[in-house]
């Protein structure tokens, strides 16, 4: 059983490595949109510091949302998704491997990049650790929840916009507690409570999302 998991994980990571350009896209998007913020709002450090926790979290959310669209797309087009569904491996495990691969190539790099963006938006010093931890755990939850939307819309011709419409409301709790933990730390309180809630949301989505996803994939493939 674990053999199938590692095989899919290795395959997806290998495919991602072969498309380096695509791999960097969410990160570049993250950076570009962040540059727009001072241009649109104001370059004053005090103002930027005030909105930095929320803006960084929203950008991470959007970058995940944009990249999750492709999670099942190429497998659907070349027929390997069909093979995965009829294979003796449990589908939820395959889904889990694919989501893990997605997180390793988007969520994790986003998290590692975030301190740089914190500096650019003059995030107060107290916010860095909560930001890194909340993004590390939170982007995993975002990938898991987003995978449900990706599975539901994979067979549709123009699924991209619909995917964001379907998934964004579901992202709201993760965003609230993720950005909230950074905000609390910046305000001088302990960020532990909301950070633990982000962890709980991640655990809950880890538990439920693979099953919802595999059900959704079967519906997408066979109606």
């Amino acid at each position: 059983m674990s053999g199938g998991f590692t095989t899919i994980l290795r395959r997806d990571l290998l495919l991602a490595m072969r498309r380096r350009g695509e791999l960097a896209n969410p990160l570049v998007f993250f950076l570009i949109v962040l540059t727009l913020v001072p241009l649109a709002v104001s370059p004053s450090p005090e103002q930027l510091a005030k909105i930095a926790p929320g803006i960084i979290w929203i950008m991470a959310l959007l970058a995940t949302l944009l990249s999750i669209d492709g999670l099942f797309q190429s497998d659907y087009r070349d027929g390997s998704l069909e093979q995965m569904i009829i294979s003796p491996q449990p589908l939820w495990l395959i889904v889990l491997a694919k989501v893990l691969a997605h997180w390793l190539v988007t969520g994790l790099p986003l998290t590692l990049l975030s301190p740089l963006l914190g500096i650019m938006l003059s995030l107060p010093e107290a916010g860095y650790w909560p930001m890194v931890i909340s993004l590390l755990v939170g982007t995993a939850a975002l990938s898991l929840i987003g995978a449900i939307g990706a599975a539901l819309t994979v067979a549709l011709r123009r699924g991209g916009l619909l995917l964001s419409l379907v998934v964004t409301p579901l992202y709201m709790p993760v965003l609230v507690f993720g950005a909230g933990s950074v905000q609390r730390a910046v305000d001088g309180f302990s960020p532990d409570g909301p950070l633990l809630v982000v962890g709980a949301l991640m655990a809950l989505s880890l538990l439920l999302a693979p099953f919802a996803c595999s059900g959704a994939l079967k519906i997408s493939m066979h109606g």
């Binding site: 449900i148 539901l152 067979a155 379907v166 409301p169 579901l170 709201m172 709790p173 609230v176 507690f177 909230g180 909301p194 949301l201 809950l204 439920l208 919802a212 059900g215 959704a216 519906i219 997408s220 109606g223």
Partner: peptide, 27 residues
Amino acid sequence: AGAKASAVLALVGTVNIPIIYKAADWW
């Protein structure tokens, strides 16, 4: 298929609604 897909989404939403209410409260 559309009915089935939106049923899955509605069920996922049902799990989410209490969390959304609590999150809005805390926020």
